[in-house]
Amino acid sequence: MDKGLDFTDATWIKSVRSWDENCVEVAFVSGGVGVRDSKNTDGPILSFTDAEWDAFAAGVKDGEIRRPLA
C-alpha cells in the first residue's frame, strides 16, 4: 500500500549485526519508515506509518513477534 512517503533522499541503515548480503535496511522519513532488501536497493520498499512501525517494534520488544519454534 502506497503511503505517499518520499524516500528519495533517505538515509538507509543496515544493522551492525549484518555479516553478509542477506539483510534489510530501514530509513526513517517524515511520517513513516521504509524497509528494503539491502542487495536490491532499487527494488520495492515496504512502507509503514510511524504508528504501524511503533506497534511492530513494541511487539518485537515484548516478545509478541518471534520466530516460531520448529
Results as ranks from 00 to 15, higher is better:
residue 45 I to K: 13
residue 52 E to F: 03
residue 15 S to F: 04
residue 4 G to Q: 14
residue 7 F to R: 03
residue 69 L to A: 14
residue 19 W to T: 13
residue 26 V to N: 04
residue 23 C to F: 00
residue 53 W to T: 04
residue 50 D to P: 01
residue 38 S to R: 01
residue 21 E to W: 09
residue 47 S to F: 01
residue 56 F to Q: 13
residue 12 W to S: 08
residue 29 V to G: 07
residue 5 L to C: 11
residue 57 A to W: 04
residue 44 P to Y: 12
residue 51 A to F: 02
residue 9 D to A: 07
residue 22 N to K: 13
residue 65 I to S: 11
residue 46 L to F: 05
residue 14 K to D: 04
residue 61 K to V: 10
residue 58 A to R: 04
residue 12 W to M: 05
residue 15 S to K: 13
residue 18 S to P: 05
residue 49 T to G: 00
residue 2 D to E: 10
residue 33 V to A: 10
residue 10 A to E: 13
residue 34 G to C: 11
residue 29 V to P: 09
residue 23 C to H: 01
residue 47 S to Y: 01
residue 23 C to V: 03
residue 54 D to R: 12
residue 47 S to G: 14
residue 12 W to C: 08
residue 4 G to V: 13
residue 37 D to E: 12
residue 63 G to Y: 03
residue 70 A to P: 12
residue 51 A to W: 03
residue 30 S to K: 12
residue 47 S to H: 07
residue 34 G to D: 06
residue 51 A to S: 06
residue 45 I to M: 08
residue 46 L to Q: 06
residue 10 A to V: 15
residue 18 S to V: 12
residue 56 F to Y: 08
residue 45 I to Y: 08
residue 25 E to S: 01
residue 36 R to L: 11
residue 67 R to Q: 12
residue 38 S to E: 11
residue 49 T to W: 00
residue 13 I to F: 15
residue 64 E to A: 09
residue 57 A to E: 08
residue 19 W to N: 06
residue 4 G to W: 05
residue 49 T to Q: 00
residue 33 V to G: 05
residue 13 I to L: 14
residue 27 A to T: 02
residue 26 V to S: 04
residue 16 V to I: 03
residue 22 N to I: 07
residue 10 A to M: 14
residue 29 V to T: 15
residue 64 E to L: 10
residue 32 G to H: 08
residue 20 D to L: 13
residue 64 E to F: 04
residue 57 A to F: 02
residue 52 E to Y: 02
residue 50 D to N: 10
residue 25 E to I: 01
residue 34 G to P: 11
residue 35 V to L: 06
residue 38 S to H: 10
residue 39 K to A: 08
residue 38 S to T: 04
residue 43 G to I: 13
residue 68 P to R: 08
residue 31 G to Q: 12
residue 1 M to T: 05
residue 19 W to M: 15
residue 45 I to W: 05
residue 51 A to P: 05
residue 59 G to P: 09
residue 8 T to E: 13
residue 67 R to G: 05
residue 68 P to C: 14
residue 57 A to V: 10
residue 39 K to N: 11
residue 66 R to C: 14
residue 34 G to H: 09
residue 65 I to M: 11
residue 43 G to D: 15
residue 59 G to F: 08
residue 49 T to D: 00
residue 20 D to H: 07
residue 21 E to Q: 09
residue 19 W to S: 14
residue 21 E to V: 11
residue 8 T to K: 12
residue 2 D to H: 03
